[in-house]
Amino acid sequence: MDPILAFADWLVYGVFGYEAGTHAGDAINFFVYDVIKIFILLMSMIFLVSYIRTYITPEKARKFLGERTGIQYNLMAAMVGVVTPFCSCSSVPIFIGFVGAGVPLGVTFSFLITSPMVNEAAVAVLGGSIGWAATAVYVISGVLIGTFGGYIIGKLKLEHLVEDFVYKTFIGEGLDPETMAWQERKDWAWGETRDIVLKVWPYILIGVGVGAIFHGYAPEGIMAEYAGKENLFAVPVAVGLGVPLYSNVMGLIPIAESLIGKGLPVGTALAFLMSVTALSLPELIILKKVLKPKLIMYFVAIVTTGIIITGYIFNLIL
């Protein structure tokens, strides 16, 4: 048996004296179990990926991608997006740094689409709540939507829709890729872990709390009734709901978990979470500094379509 579940059972049913199978007992057990599991995963995952990140810097990625086109470079750029930081404040400097130095627009977009969608914190919370199979689906879809979305943008030849200053910006050399000692990498990774956990913990607690109440008190199968697979509007509506929601994605994942438990199809839930991370109003506003509105519309349309298709596909096969 899962030791964390055993602990949650012992604490809630044994020490607190709640009865298993009651609304309150189920809700509190869900809360204790999810919080412990999510925080253990969150800390180990962020530490691991931050450590890897000390080796894969955007400067190295830019050199590696070069000026070549071809879908394999879109794929590589999307994978670089997985390991770079998810803060939207760094996406624009990287965009300018890539395009200004000659990385093709489509390849840069593959990076830009996947980077916010797939990050270690979301992966840890997804794995801890919804499970690893759905997490793998989420990560692979995020990389593929970035790869093909960027490829299409490259094929559409939209270079004229990037603000002119991006091409005119002389890109400086930046920092020499320093050789960090093991200790320094470890310290940096630990600093990142602390920063991110301190930033997201309230959202996770609120999300798990809401999810726990829903888990304990909502009628079985209620989501299947209103947003089941046969309701074809459910996926686009879920994607539309996701756009205005942004910083609280870590909190939305445990809520999505409880909705899946009450019959929401996994594909619909993943499509919702993808649209929360991939398309956010603050990011679109920041992107306006480097992209003309028409290109932002292409970006939103391509990513939305990709996410909706992914939602339908996974509702069919899962």
Binding site: T57, P58, E59, R62, P85, C89, S90, V92, P93, I94, I96, G97, F98, G100, F165, V166, T169, F170, I171, G172, E173, G174, L175, K289, V290
Partner: peptide, 15 residues
Amino acid sequence: DFAEIAKRGVMVTPA
């Protein structure tokens, strides 16, 4: 300013 940041070769802030 993003353009000024890029001119200095910086892609990851703060710098």
